[in-house]
Protein backbone atom coordinates (compact mmCIF):
# COMPACT_ATOMS: atom_id res chain seq x y z
CA UNK A 1 0.00 0.00 0.00
CA UNK A 2 1.20 3.48 -0.79
CA UNK A 3 2.90 5.40 1.94
CA UNK A 4 3.96 2.43 4.01
CA UNK A 5 7.60 3.37 3.84
CA UNK A 6 6.93 6.79 5.26
CA UNK A 7 7.08 6.65 9.05
CA UNK A 8 4.90 9.73 9.37
CA UNK A 9 2.10 8.27 7.33
CA UNK A 10 2.14 4.64 8.35
CA UNK A 11 2.56 4.92 12.07
CA UNK A 12 3.81 1.54 13.02
CA UNK A 13 6.09 -0.60 10.90
CA UNK A 14 5.14 -4.26 10.46
CA UNK A 15 8.00 -5.12 12.81
CA UNK A 16 6.67 -2.79 15.47
CA UNK A 17 3.20 -4.32 15.27
CA UNK A 18 4.84 -7.72 15.57
CA UNK A 19 6.82 -6.48 18.56
CA UNK A 20 3.55 -5.61 20.28
CA UNK A 21 2.09 -8.98 19.36
CA UNK A 22 5.05 -10.75 20.94
CA UNK A 23 3.79 -9.71 24.36
CA UNK A 24 0.64 -11.80 24.03
CA UNK A 25 0.60 -14.76 26.40
CA UNK A 26 0.84 -18.37 25.27
CA UNK A 27 1.08 -21.66 27.07
CA UNK A 28 4.26 -23.68 26.80
CA UNK A 29 5.33 -27.09 28.09
CA UNK A 30 9.01 -26.96 29.00
CA UNK A 31 11.25 -30.01 28.72
CA UNK A 32 13.87 -28.68 31.12
CA UNK A 33 14.24 -27.23 34.56
CA UNK A 34 14.83 -23.55 35.00
CA UNK A 35 14.34 -21.16 37.91
CA UNK A 36 11.68 -18.47 37.65
CA UNK A 37 12.64 -15.49 35.51
CA UNK A 38 12.17 -12.12 37.18
CA UNK A 39 12.10 -9.97 34.09
CA UNK A 40 11.35 -6.28 33.75
CA UNK A 41 8.13 -7.16 31.94
CA UNK A 42 7.02 -9.59 34.67
CA UNK A 43 7.83 -12.81 36.52
CA UNK A 44 7.55 -16.11 34.69
CA UNK A 45 8.12 -19.73 35.58
CA UNK A 46 9.35 -21.78 37.37
CA UNK A 47 9.92 -24.09 34.45
CA UNK A 48 9.55 -27.81 35.11
CA UNK A 49 9.46 -30.63 32.56
CA UNK A 50 5.92 -31.47 31.41
CA UNK A 51 4.34 -28.76 33.51
CA UNK A 52 2.58 -26.14 31.44
CA UNK A 53 3.15 -22.47 32.15
CA UNK A 54 2.16 -19.12 30.65
CA UNK A 55 4.79 -16.91 29.04
CA UNK A 56 4.84 -14.06 26.52
CA UNK A 57 5.15 -15.14 22.92
CA UNK A 58 8.68 -13.79 22.48
CA UNK A 59 9.87 -15.89 25.40
CA UNK A 60 8.05 -18.95 24.09
CA UNK A 61 9.65 -18.54 20.66
CA UNK A 62 13.10 -18.03 22.19
CA UNK A 63 12.78 -21.25 24.19
CA UNK A 64 11.30 -23.10 21.25
CA UNK A 65 14.18 -22.10 18.97
CA UNK A 66 16.56 -23.71 21.43
CA UNK A 67 14.43 -26.83 21.65
CA UNK A 68 13.53 -26.22 25.30
CA UNK A 69 9.76 -26.42 25.07
CA UNK A 70 6.71 -27.14 23.00
CA UNK A 71 4.16 -24.40 22.47
CA UNK A 72 0.46 -25.12 22.91
CA UNK A 73 -1.26 -23.26 20.11
CA UNK A 74 -4.12 -21.09 21.37
CA UNK A 75 -7.60 -22.54 21.15
CA UNK A 76 -8.67 -20.33 18.25
CA UNK A 77 -5.81 -21.62 16.12
CA UNK A 78 -7.35 -25.01 15.36
CA UNK A 79 -8.72 -26.08 11.99
CA UNK A 80 -12.19 -26.50 13.52
CA UNK A 81 -12.34 -23.07 15.11
CA UNK A 82 -10.84 -21.30 12.13
CA UNK A 83 -13.21 -23.01 9.71
CA UNK A 84 -16.10 -21.74 11.81
CA UNK A 85 -14.64 -18.26 11.91
CA UNK A 86 -14.11 -18.23 8.15
CA UNK A 87 -17.67 -19.34 7.54
CA UNK A 88 -19.08 -16.73 9.91
CA UNK A 89 -16.80 -14.14 8.37
CA UNK A 90 -18.20 -14.96 4.92
CA UNK A 91 -21.81 -15.00 6.10
CA UNK A 92 -21.73 -11.63 7.74
CA UNK A 93 -21.45 -8.69 5.41
CA UNK A 94 -20.36 -6.08 7.89
CA UNK A 95 -19.25 -7.58 11.13
CA UNK A 96 -15.84 -8.95 11.95
CA UNK A 97 -15.55 -12.10 13.99
CA UNK A 98 -13.85 -11.76 17.36
CA UNK A 99 -10.24 -12.83 17.02
CA UNK A 100 -7.28 -11.78 19.15
CA UNK A 101 -6.12 -8.24 18.40
CA UNK A 102 -2.81 -9.68 17.23
CA UNK A 103 -4.07 -12.83 15.53
CA UNK A 104 -2.10 -12.24 12.33
CA UNK A 105 1.19 -11.84 14.14
CA UNK A 106 0.59 -14.68 16.59
CA UNK A 107 -0.33 -17.06 13.77
CA UNK A 108 2.69 -16.01 11.74
CA UNK A 109 5.17 -16.33 14.58
CA UNK A 110 3.82 -19.69 15.66
CA UNK A 111 3.69 -21.18 12.19
CA UNK A 112 7.22 -19.91 11.49
CA UNK A 113 8.82 -21.10 14.69
CA UNK A 114 6.62 -23.81 16.15
CA UNK A 115 5.41 -25.58 13.04
CA UNK A 116 5.64 -29.03 14.64
CA UNK A 117 3.45 -27.97 17.57
CA UNK A 118 0.49 -26.95 15.43
CA UNK A 119 -1.72 -29.75 14.15
CA UNK A 120 -2.41 -29.35 10.41
CA UNK A 121 -0.18 -26.33 10.20
CA UNK A 122 -0.65 -25.87 6.45
CA UNK A 123 -4.40 -25.96 6.76
CA UNK A 124 -4.24 -23.48 9.65
CA UNK A 125 -2.06 -21.20 7.61
CA UNK A 126 -4.30 -21.20 4.60
CA UNK A 127 -7.39 -20.67 6.75
CA UNK A 128 -5.79 -17.64 8.38
CA UNK A 129 -4.89 -16.36 4.95
CA UNK A 130 -8.48 -16.79 3.76
CA UNK A 131 -9.86 -15.12 6.86
CA UNK A 132 -7.54 -12.17 6.35
CA UNK A 133 -8.68 -11.82 2.76
CA UNK A 134 -12.36 -11.94 3.56
CA UNK A 135 -11.91 -9.42 6.37
CA UNK A 136 -9.89 -7.14 4.20
CA UNK A 137 -12.49 -7.15 1.51
CA UNK A 138 -15.00 -6.23 4.18
CA UNK A 139 -12.84 -3.34 5.34
CA UNK A 140 -12.70 -2.04 1.79
CA UNK A 141 -16.46 -2.25 1.32
CA UNK A 142 -16.94 -0.67 4.72
CA UNK A 143 -14.87 2.32 3.65
CA UNK A 144 -17.46 3.15 1.03
CA UNK A 145 -19.84 4.16 3.77
CA UNK A 146 -17.54 6.96 4.88
CA UNK A 147 -19.11 10.23 3.86
CA UNK A 148 -18.86 13.92 4.52
CA UNK A 149 -20.53 13.80 7.91
CA UNK A 150 -18.43 11.01 9.27
CA UNK A 151 -17.14 12.05 12.66
CA UNK A 152 -16.56 8.63 14.08
CA UNK A 153 -15.91 5.23 12.62
CA UNK A 154 -16.33 2.11 14.66
CA UNK A 155 -14.33 -0.94 13.70
CA UNK A 156 -15.34 -3.61 16.10
CA UNK A 157 -12.93 -6.55 16.23
CA UNK A 158 -10.54 -5.17 13.66
CA UNK A 159 -7.06 -6.44 14.41
CA UNK A 160 -3.84 -4.49 14.95
CA UNK A 161 -2.25 -5.35 11.62
CA UNK A 162 -5.45 -4.64 9.71
CA UNK A 163 -5.91 -1.29 11.39
CA UNK A 164 -2.33 -0.34 10.72
CA UNK A 165 -2.62 -1.15 7.03
CA UNK A 166 -5.80 0.81 6.38
CA UNK A 167 -4.81 3.71 8.60
CA UNK A 168 -3.01 5.92 6.04
CA UNK A 169 -5.86 5.73 3.57
CA UNK A 170 -8.69 6.07 6.06
CA UNK A 171 -7.12 9.00 7.87
CA UNK A 172 -6.51 10.88 4.64
CA UNK A 173 -10.02 10.15 3.39
CA UNK A 174 -11.59 11.35 6.63
CA UNK A 175 -9.42 14.45 6.63
CA UNK A 176 -10.44 15.23 3.07
CA UNK A 177 -14.10 14.85 3.90
CA UNK A 178 -13.71 16.91 7.01
CA UNK A 179 -11.99 19.66 5.03
CA UNK A 180 -14.55 19.76 2.25
CA UNK A 181 -17.44 19.45 4.64
CA UNK A 182 -19.31 22.69 4.24
CA UNK A 183 -22.78 23.66 5.46
CA UNK A 184 -24.32 24.08 1.99
CA UNK A 185 -23.77 20.43 1.22
CA UNK A 186 -26.98 18.90 2.34
CA UNK A 187 -26.58 15.18 2.65
CA UNK A 188 -29.05 13.14 0.68
CA UNK A 189 -29.61 9.51 1.44
CA UNK A 190 -27.85 6.66 -0.34
CA UNK A 191 -26.43 7.87 -3.62
CA UNK A 192 -24.75 10.98 -2.30
CA UNK A 193 -22.23 9.06 -0.27
CA UNK A 194 -20.97 7.24 -3.30
CA UNK A 195 -21.00 10.23 -5.58
CA UNK A 196 -19.19 12.38 -3.08
CA UNK A 197 -16.61 9.70 -2.67
CA UNK A 198 -15.77 9.77 -6.33
CA UNK A 199 -15.56 13.50 -6.28
CA UNK A 200 -13.15 13.33 -3.40
CA UNK A 201 -11.06 10.73 -5.20
CA UNK A 202 -10.66 12.90 -8.24
CA UNK A 203 -10.23 16.10 -6.31
CA UNK A 204 -6.48 16.14 -5.82
CA UNK A 205 -5.70 15.24 -9.42
CA UNK A 206 -7.75 18.10 -10.72
CA UNK A 207 -6.06 20.49 -8.38
CA UNK A 208 -2.68 19.53 -9.64
CA UNK A 209 -3.57 20.26 -13.21
CA UNK A 210 -4.36 23.87 -12.50
Amino acid sequence: MAGQSDPYISLFSAQEVEFLGEDEMVEIVPNMRMDPLNLICGDFGPFRPQIATQVPLWLAVALKKRGKCTIRPPEWMSVDKLTQVLEAERNSLREFQPLPFHYVEIARLLSDHARDDIPDVYMVRSLIEDIRNVRFHKVETGLETIHERTHAVKLKNLSAMEANIVRPFVVRALQAFYKHDSPEMIPQPDTTAIRRRQVADRGPKRDRRY
Binding site: H151, V153, K154, L155, K156, V170, L174, Y178
Partner: peptide
Protein backbone atom coordinates in the same frame (compact mmCIF):
# COMPACT_ATOMS: atom_id res chain seq x y z
CA UNK B 1 -20.76 18.35 16.15
CA UNK B 2 -23.87 17.62 18.12
CA UNK B 3 -23.26 13.95 17.73
CA UNK B 4 -22.57 11.74 20.69
CA UNK B 5 -21.14 8.26 20.63
CA UNK B 6 -21.11 5.48 23.18
CA UNK B 7 -17.64 4.04 23.38
CA UNK B 8 -17.73 0.35 24.16
CA UNK B 9 -14.77 -1.09 26.05
CA UNK B 10 -12.11 -2.65 23.86
CA UNK B 11 -13.73 -1.74 20.56
CA UNK B 12 -11.70 0.09 17.97
CA UNK B 13 -12.76 3.57 16.91
CA UNK B 14 -11.49 6.20 14.53
CA UNK B 15 -12.16 9.61 16.07
CA UNK B 16 -10.91 13.14 15.75
Amino acid sequence: SKEVVDLVADDLYILR
